[in-house]
Design a protein around this nucleic acid. Sequence first.
DNA 1: CGGCCTCTTGAGACAGTTCAACCTATGTGG
DNA 2: CCACATAGGTTGAACTGTCTCAAGAGGCCG
Lengths: 243, 243
Amino acid sequence: MLSPTSPLVRKLSTFVALPSGDLELLAGFHRRRRTFMSGSEIISEGEKRQCAYILAKGWACSFKIQPDGRRQVVDFQIPGDFLGLRSLLFRTSDHSAEAVTDIEASEVLIGDVLDAFSRAPRLATAVLWAASRDEAMVVEHLVNIGRRSAEQRLAHILLEMDARLKLVGLSDTDGYAFPLTQFHLADLLGLTAVHVNRIIRLLREKNLVHIQHRRVKFLNREGLIALAAFDGAYLDQDGPMLP
Amino acid sequence: MLSPTSPLVRKLSTFVALPSGDLELLAGFHRRRRTFMSGSEIISEGEKRQCAYILAKGWACSFKIQPDGRRQVVDFQIPGDFLGLRSLLFRTSDHSAEAVTDIEASEVLIGDVLDAFSRAPRLATAVLWAASRDEAMVVEHLVNIGRRSAEQRLAHILLEMDARLKLVGLSDTDGYAFPLTQFHLADLLGLTAVHVNRIIRLLREKNLVHIQHRRVKFLNREGLIALAAFDGAYLDQDGPMLP
DNA sequence: CGGCCTCTTGAGACAGTTCAACCTATGTGG
DNA sequence: CCACATAGGTTGAACTGTCTCAAGAGGCCG
C-alpha cells in the first residue's frame, strides 16, 4: 500500500484533491518495483514500445545524443517524477534516460494507464497536469539556453531544483544534496564542462551559492533570484488547488 | 458536425483509431469558434485561468518574454494543434501566444476536458499523446539550440515544419507556404535576425533551400536532412497505429 | 507619396569553445 | 594500508561563432 506522503501523491495533490479510490489506483502503479545502479541506462532512444517509470528514490536524467556524440540533457528527474512517459506512448522512444545515482522506481505499462484513465478520469487530468508541468520545465530550459547568459542559466537551474525538491520534501532551508557533476550541468545548460566550472567559481566569488561536496548551499538567495530573473510560476506548485 | 478530415482528427487518428462516439465528443470542442487578427495576443503569460484553443486555420506562435525584452519562441502552431493547453491546466499561464497570420480557432474550457475525459477515456489517452508530441517538439528545439550550429538549427526546423504540415495536408512535394519572418525564426532558434539572414543566404548559396516570398522551397532535401541530422521519429507520425 | 516593416550587408567586439596540462578526491586490489 | 587507477574538478591561452551596432535597400499599404 502506498503511503499518503509518497512523492508522486504529494506532487499530484498540489493540483487536485484525489478521492481515496483514485489514490488506491495510484498505489497499484507501484506494484513492479525496480532498482537501477548509478550510470545504468533506463530508457533507450530508438527502442520500440518501452515502458515508463515513476521515480521513488534517487536522481535520473533524460537526454538525447547527437550523431557527433555530443549530448543534450533535457531534464533531471527526482522522486515523484515520471521517467519516460513519452516513450510509453510513442511508437519508438524519442529520448534516453539514465540513473544519475542508484535509484528505485516503479514500472508503468501502457495498459496500466489506459485502465486507470477509464476508471478514474480525475486521475487522467492529474497525469495530464504532471506531463504539462514537465513540458513547462523543458520550455524554461529552452528559454535558459536560448536567451540567458551562462551565469543566469546556472543560477536558474539551481533555483528550479530547489523549488522542485521542496515540493517533495528533499530540500533544507540553506540548500540541498546535489549529485550532479559539472558534465551533467554542462549538458543541460548547453555549455562545456570547462565553462560551467568557471561560472561556478564566479557565483562562489560573488558569494551567491556554493556548489561543493555534492551539495548546493545558498548564501544569497535573493541575489540569485534577481540575477536569474527567476519566477517559479511555471512549476505551478503554489497557490490554491483546482476546485 | 466535424468533418472527418479536420486537422485535429487527422492528427489524433495517426495515434489511435477513435470510435465514432469519441469523434462526436471531439466535434463538440468546435462549438465556440473564434477569429484573431494577425499579430494579436491570444494567451498572456501571468494571466489566471485562461482557456485553450484548437487551431483550425493559420499559424500561431507560443513564446516567453524575458525581463530585458528579449523573446524566446517555444513553438509554432499550425492547424490541428492545441494552443495554450498548459494555461488551461495551470493556475497562471506560463507562456504567451500570438497569431502569426489571421487565424481561426475553437475555444476549449477546462470543463470540456474533464467532461470528455470521463466519457471517453480513449480520447484522454489521445490528448495525452498529442501533449506528449508537443513536448517532444520542444525537446527537439532544446537540442537544436543547445547542441547544433546555426546552419543545422535552421535546416532542422524547416524539415520539422514540412513533416508537420504534411500530416495535416498543408505541404506540397517541393515545399510549403511559410508566413514566418526572420525575426520569428531568430526567436525560435536562439539567434539574432541578422544572423538568421546570413544563414538563409548560406543555405541558398549551397542550393539546399530557398526561403523567399513567404514560401519554403526545397532544392536538395537529402542534403538538408544530412546537414541537420534530421530524424523525424520524435514526431511519432509514421508507422502502424497503437492497437 | 511617405512611412513602416522586413530583409540585407559590413566591421568590430565578446561570450563561450577548444585543447592541453595539472590537481584532488575516492575507491580498489595487492 | 599503501600504490595506483580513475573520475571529477581547476586553470590558462588561443580561437571562433554569433552578437552588436550601423547603414541602406526593397516592397507593401494607407
